[in-house]
């Protein structure tokens, strides 16, 4: 019985109360398994994610290191890199996204079939990072919805793996009855933006040290 090895804590609710998610009947024999469909589907999904690596810059090198021999992403069910968005589950945006690339990442996201998730790897993809200038999008969440942000410049492979595990946890909490999470977000036809322009301006505001570093001399 392969399924008995699933850690029960994978689902957040069963820790507190409620009936067992997996029960095997008759006890100790090769009988049948009863479980919740949600749980089974999510378990399957979260452990066979097909990533679509959208690697642009330095973070992509760390992504490659994560996939290579030492860190071996395959241990998490992700060895099947899907370079075609139509066969992918999770978009991993590794690297900075300049404005010129914005329509492309949007296009790739739209080409991915549901269910789909996005991981934003690195400071640049998440916030624009150290590139607070005319060319770089200040966070890909202004273009596509993001599930997990992995901080770091670049994040270490361990960090990315942790982010992926967090995504797996998130997937385990999804409910089929909640139809809205699978809805495609449609951009506003006039402005082509998902989120209001004022909100984009607000989250793209410079912060911290970079506010003071706009003087070019002395």
């Amino acid at each position: 019985m392969g399924l008995t090895s699933i850690p029960h804590s994978a689902s957040p609710e069963n820790a507190s109360s409620g009936p067992e998610i997996i029960s095997i009947e008759p006890k100790g024999g090769d009988g049948w398994v009863t479980t919740r469909l949600d749980f089974l589907v999510n378990w399957g999904r979260s452990n066979s994610l097909w990533p679509m690596p959208f690697g642009t810059a330095c973070c992509a090198i760390e992504f490659m290191a994560t996939a290579a021999s030492k860190f071996d992403l395959a241990r998490f069910g992700m060895e099947r890199m899907s370079f075609s968005p139509r066969q992918a589950d999770v978009l991993i945006c590794a690297g900075r996204v300049p404005f010129k690339l914005a329509p492309i990442i949007r296009r790739i996201w739209q080409q991915m079939p549901q269910p789909k998730w996005a991981i934003s790897m690195g400071a640049c993809a998440s916030t624009g990072g150290m590139f607070d200038n005319y060319a770089v999008v200040q966070g890909i969440d202004t273009i596509i919805p993001v599930d997990v942000y992995v901080p770091g410049c670049p994040p270490r492979p361990e960090g990315l793996i942790y982010g992926i595990m967090m995504l797996q946890k998130k997937i385990m909490t999804e409910r089929m009855s909640n139809k809205s999470i699978r809805d495609e977000m449609e951009p506003d036809p006039s402005s082509k933006l998902y989120i209001p322009a004022s909100r984009i301006d607000e989250i793209s505001e410079p912060f911290g040290n970079s506010v003071h570093q706009t003087r070019s001399a002395p």
């Binding site: 642009t56 810059a57 330095c58 090198i61 690297g95 900075r96 300049p98 010129k100 690339l101 492309i104 150290m130 590139f131 200038n133 005319y134 060319a135 770089v136 570093q213 706009t214 003087r215 070019s216």
Partner: peptide, 27 residues
């Protein structure tokens, strides 16, 4: 498609401050 304005940023940073940018240009 990966134009990030390195040269422009360089004009806004002191010499030692530019060094982190040089990492990220040919990474």
């Amino acid at each position: 498609y990966l134009h990030c304005g390195f040269e422009k940023i360089g004009e806004y940073r002191q010499y030692n401050q530019i060094i982190p940018w040089t990492d990220r240009e040919d990474y």
